[in-house]
Simulated scan of single mutants.
Amino acid sequence: MIENNSGERWEIGETLKAIRLNSGMKQTEVYSNVMSRAHLQRIEKNAQIPTYPLLLNVIHKFSMDVNEFEYIRNEYSFSETQKLFHKFRNIKTTLNTDAMRNLIQEVDNYLLKNKSAFIQNLHYILNGYLILQETNNIDKARKYFDPVWKNIQKKETWYYNDIILMSNIFYMFEDEPLQFILNQLNKYFKLYAGFADIDRISRITRFNYCTLLRLQNRYFETESILNELLTSATKAREGTMILEIKFALNQIHWLKGFKNASDFEAERIISSMELLGDIKASEDMKKDWEKFKGEQTISIH
């Protein structure tokens, strides 16, 4: 492992030199046809900062990308902003109010010392989720989500962080902005296809949209979307999502009159979720299935 005992973030040239030496590569192997020997020595001694295109060229010769280079340069650690973002994404469910409160405190402390539109947007979203859980009042919660949308709406182009933020809150808006946001998300899901975990985020977003329609008793409108998602999730081997999609499709099967077969399938799906170790999800499915069957009148649009 490359080590830096200074306790401080490495300089660019220092990091390049350490990676080169650790890889057993000579200077000529890395820098030939890229820069002069004198230029190289100035960079590796931190006397000169390389241009971005030159830096990319060298990093690629290490079979490495910029994210990994920065991770190494930061003492094998993420930046403070990245750490907050990862904690936000690891909360997983808005039912985890304790985790949200703890993260809000961390975000507050960060914003006291730093300006960051992105972290401010995280702050709004966390508070909006918390209000929603405590009051079950979407209008009160939307007051926190609206500033996020207003900030991102001003941008001509959305980037990865914008996509993640909006995919987490799109269903909080009224129909007109909701449809516009969904169209924008679908546009950027295509542009970013294959980048990081965007494909998984795309599936989650589309499934959440189906959940929104189901809450409005618009079950049959979700069938084609769910079938596409099932194919995609199966290729990606996302076990939990596969079962959630099958559960939603099974509700449609029940509505079509196949009640006995649907009851059997629901039991099978719930048991499979238990086997995956997601006990909370299996318990929620069991309650949802009984509630779904117990509804005497369902308006299907």
Rank of each mutant, 00 (worst) to 15 (best):
I2L: 15
I12Q: 08
E14W: 08
R20E: 14
V30I: 15
N33G: 04
M35V: 10
K45H: 11
I49S: 11
H60Q: 15
S63L: 15
E68A: 13
E68T: 15
Y71E: 09
K83Q: 09
L84T: 01
F88R: 02
N90E: 13
I91P: 02
T94H: 04
A99V: 00
L103Q: 05
I104R: 04
I104D: 04
Q105D: 10
L112H: 08
K115F: 07
Q120S: 09
H123G: 00
I125D: 01
L126K: 01
N127D: 03
G128N: 02
R142H: 04
D146T: 06
K154Q: 14
K154Y: 03
L165C: 00
D175I: 15
E176H: 07
F180Y: 12
L182G: 06
N183M: 14
A196H: 11
S202W: 06
F207P: 03
Q216H: 15
E221C: 05
E221H: 12
N227G: 04
L229Q: 05
T231F: 14
T240Y: 09
L243A: 06
L243C: 04
N250M: 05
K256R: 12
I270M: 04
S282W: 03
S282Y: 03
D284T: 07
E290K: 12
E290M: 10
F292K: 04
Q296N: 11
